[in-house]
């Protein structure tokens, strides 16, 4: 464990909590892509199947449970409790265009052809594109509430810190997980455009982020 990975995991947890609390307290999921949250719940489900078969550490187990619980709790807020405020009209990204290539690739490019490993690979590839419906929804509505942009900022920060974690682990331990790194780089690139808008608009105190 290193400071980059630990702070990355904390940023990831903060992002998920920010989103959950925003929906819970505002009793609305307007502007939130339910599809992205469904994809993230699928990412955690397919990645953490080893929760009961492989014990890494208390921290690892606890974080996996917390991520799973919060992911499904957020999905249930969006699709059940506050479904009247769910803007399915704007949340129109065709997720099948993500799921099919990701599933196909996880069968082609993986470390070992076992069910658990293919599902883990699927979750890694899926995570790199899971935010696209949310980013697409923001471009479609042309705006995002500032709390939503803070959620995206912490998600992007988590991914950026994981890149630093991999540089550190390669330098310190010679560790290099090619599938995770390539997928992680692709995922972080998707946040670059958002980061630009975030730093030039939201942090300038303009509150909402409105797209040009």
């Amino acid at each position: 464990m290193n400071i980059f990975r630990l702070s990355g995991d904390v940023c990831h947890l903060v992002a998920i909590i920010i989103l959950f609390l925003k929906i819970w307290r505002s009793k609305s999921c307007a502007g939130i892509s339910g599809k992205s949250q469904l994809l993230f719940a699928l990412v955690f489900t397919t990645r953490y199947l080893d929760l009961f078969t492989a014990f890494i550490s208390i921290y690892n187990t606890v974080m996996k449970v917390v991520f799973l619980v919060l992911a499904y709790a957020t999905v249930s807020l969006i699709y059940f409790r506050f479904r009247k405020s769910y803007d399915s009209e704007s949340d129109s990204f065709r997720v099948e265009f993500l799921l099919v290539p990701v599933a196909g690739l996880s069968f082609l490019e993986n470390y070992s052809f076992t069910p658990l490993e293919i599902l883990w690979t699927f979750s890694i590839y899926l995570e790199s594109v899971a935010i696209l419906p949310q980013l697409f929804m923001i471009t479609k509505t042309g705006e995002a509430e500032s709390i939503t942009t803070h959620y995206l900022f912490f998600l992007g920060l988590y991914r950026t810190l994981y890149l630093a974690n991999w540089v550190w682990r390669y330098h310190e331990e010679g560790f290099f997980d090619q599938i995770a790194v390539v997928s992680g780089v692709v995922q972080t690139i998707f946040y670059c455009d958002f980061f630009y808008l975030y730093f030039t608009r939201v942090l300038r105190g303009s509150g909402k982020m409105t797209l040009p």
Binding site: I56, M63, K64
Partner: peptide, 10 residues
């Protein structure tokens, strides 16, 4: 090879 790969990252 179909060995189990241990993934220690979240």
């Amino acid at each position: 090879a179909d060995e189990e790969v241990a993934h220690d990252e979240l």
